[in-house]
Design a binder for these strands. Structure first.
Lengths: 218, 218
DNA sequence: CCGCGGATTTGATCCAGATCAATGCGGCGA
DNA sequence: TCGCCGCATTGATCTGGATCAAATCCGCGG
């Protein structure tokens, strides 16, 4: 099994073995739904490969993407009866699934693990606060630049540092993450590209002027 | 000492006594800053009275209020070196302060408590996702109505159920929480008031048409 | 009771981003 | 190879909420 990155660094060998015995490796094809907002929360997931779109819907169809899960991320930590958002695969995805029962038992038995999960949750909360700042107070150009730098950093932390940022999600996904329309996202990409701030490449973007981008994100 | 509501329900008598021995009751006057974004995180706080504004600033002065802390809420849980946002008192505030050392020692010693804190953090994260939906995809009127209903529910859960929602924060605070300007907040209040959806009273708002409000928030 | 200063409301105008409407561009199956 | 079909880009126009600009309101100290 792919190592459960990011949560397990503090575990001993036998604890890791226990964890692996409880994990069910599963994979999903592009567009598959892992779970839906409001449905009963059977499982907790650790992403081992691919990218997942996490989103909430309003009854009239308006959508807010609340995040993109990358390898190493945990989903369904809320420990409540129903999922608070929906999740579906962007491209092929591999995860380790844990039943809720196994998850809660494990957490009760291993305070180390709970501490790691809690650190993970508080980090997520910090990111959520950043995203509120972005959604409430930033312009379209700032939103897109912050998004690109954020994705670049996340890939870098996963050992894929590169000036080329992979963007496997659609423009609509990006728009729904940033609180914009698809047209505004497209126009803003075009403008940044004409600026020579970025270069648009198939499946992503190459960062050409990181200084300017960092200055805007400041 | 005021009972540490919401985190301590699961603790035994001696655990509670231990907790109280570590807490330093403190109070702040209106406008006082409990801590600032980026400053070293010395303390964790449990609010026992009053309301606190939590916010982030951009270098050019744009502000995003990321939440309002009410009695029972915890601040500074992130367990990292620096605070991720600033906090200041709206009216007089009472808190129990815990030094970071005492807090981490306590958490290490009492897995019960950690579980409660983790549940608290995941609840906060769920609220943060709701707020992203609100900031990214809702109209000004929807934002204000969701805000009023949310505050009403929070006061109700604290044992103050009422059709009159106290709003001790300024219009500017509300605007910065909802990603609007003060003028838009004011105009929207006026419009809802003319609608007979709400009645504006000193220090707050009386909910006159909860059905319509719930329908909009849906 | 009066005057001052901050908060709030109201009005007029502007504009960033939404909406409406084509058009372009791959990738893929027949 | 061709023709679709779903994404993406581009253009024209519209509009919700921002910005600019005065009034009001109100709590408080003298």
């Amino acid at each position: 099994m792919v190592r459960l990155v990011s949560v397990c660094a503090s575990l001993s060998e036998d604890e890791l073995a226990l964890l692996e015995s409880l994990a069910t490796p599963t994979h999903f094809a592009s567009g598959d739904t892992l779970f839906s907002q409001g449905s009963e929360a059977h499982c907790v997931y650790n992403v081992t490969g691919g990218v997942i779109r996490l989103y909430k819907l309003l009854s009239d169809g308006r959508r807010q993407v609340v995040g993109f899960a990358l390898p190493g991320d945990f989903l369904g930590l809320a420990m409540r009866d129903a999922y608070g958002f929906s999740a579906d695969a962007i491209g092929d995805v591999a995860v380790c699934a844990f039943s809720r029962g196994a998850y809660t038992a494990l957490v009760d038995a291993k305070p180390h693990l709970l501490k790691r999960l809690h650190a993970f949750a508080t980090h997520e909360l910090t990111l959520a606060h950043e995203q509120m700042m972005l959604l409430g107070r930033r312009t379209a150009e700032e939103k897109l630049i912050c998004f690109l730098l954020g994705m670049q950093q996340r890939w870098a932390r996963l050992g894929k540092p590169s000036v080329t940022v992979p963007l496997p999600m659609t423009r609509q996904d990006i728009a729904d993450f940033l609180g914009l329309t698809i047209e505004t996202v497209s126009r803003t990409f075009t403008r940044l590209s004409k600026d020579k701030t970025i270069l648009i490449v198939p499946g992503g973007v190459r960062v050409m002027n990181p200084e300017r981008m960092s200055a805007v994100a400041a």
